[in-house]
Nucleic acid binder design. Structure first.
Lengths: 117, 117
DNA sequence: TTAGTATATGAACAGTTGTTCATATGTTCA
DNA sequence: TGAACATATGAACAACTGTTCATATACTAA
């Protein structure tokens, strides 16, 4: 098998070294899944509401003006990636932001987009 | 028009207040686009390489083992959202991470997924 | 100018996603 | 126990995405 031609900037050893220091393939895939979850307007709105106050499904439904089904599906996605967590409270299911990483994540992104005028 | 029935936890005034403190619809949409860009394995790998060292397209091509076209398309997406920036250097086009927000963003996500054993 | 290298772009196709509708499950209280 | 409320889930369809292929553009050196 022939090696592909390399341009003069390419240093195979250095690239090998950089690849070793990069996250494992498995974690890249997990991160993809997390960002994938954060890529929906509905799910982002849910997170920015939960960031202020934990809420049950019907509160979110009221606030977001989408169907209960859509909220529930969205919450499941967030839950499966441990971006939000759940607590039962009588007949209500109360959702809240899982941890500070999640807050920082969405806040960094907000700052990034707010920066552009 | 009838108001939808509300569950006892719903406080319309409070919800109104929470909505006002949430990011504007425009910024939610921008964030969606950013997270959407971060949701691809290829683009994530690009960012985690650029995080270590600025690189030209052919270096990335070598490192990622995808076609030059895929790298270039990926870089365009990242560039359009100001996640990476470009500098011409002779015949090479050198890409680098745009700013600290972007570093923090991907590092928070990595920490989040690394936490789960 | 021309050849060769480096990068960008458009089209197109397979694969993936978010929503809604319909329905199921779970909880409370009378 | 049953009625009413709260939440979850499965199916299905339209819309969107990432890659490749083919080709265009840009820069350099001879």
């Amino acid at each position: 098998m022939f090696m592909k031609e390399k341009c003069e900037r390419v240093n195979p050893e250095q690239i090998e070294n950089l690849l070793q220091k990069a996250p494992a393939a498995e974690n890249i895939t997990r991160m993809s899944a997390v960002f994938q979850a954060l890529q929906s307007n509905t799910r982002l709105k849910i997170l920015f509401l939960l960031r202020q106050k934990e809420m049950c499904v019907c509160e979110l439904e009221q606030a977001l003006e989408v169907t209960q089904s859509a909220v529930s599906h969205g919450l499941r996605t967030l839950r499966q990636l441990d971006l939000v967590r759940v607590r039962r409270e009588g007949k209500f299911t109360v959702y809240y932001i899982a941890d500070e990483h999640v807050r920082t994540l969405i806040e960094m992104c907000l700052e990034h987009v707010e920066e552009k005028t």
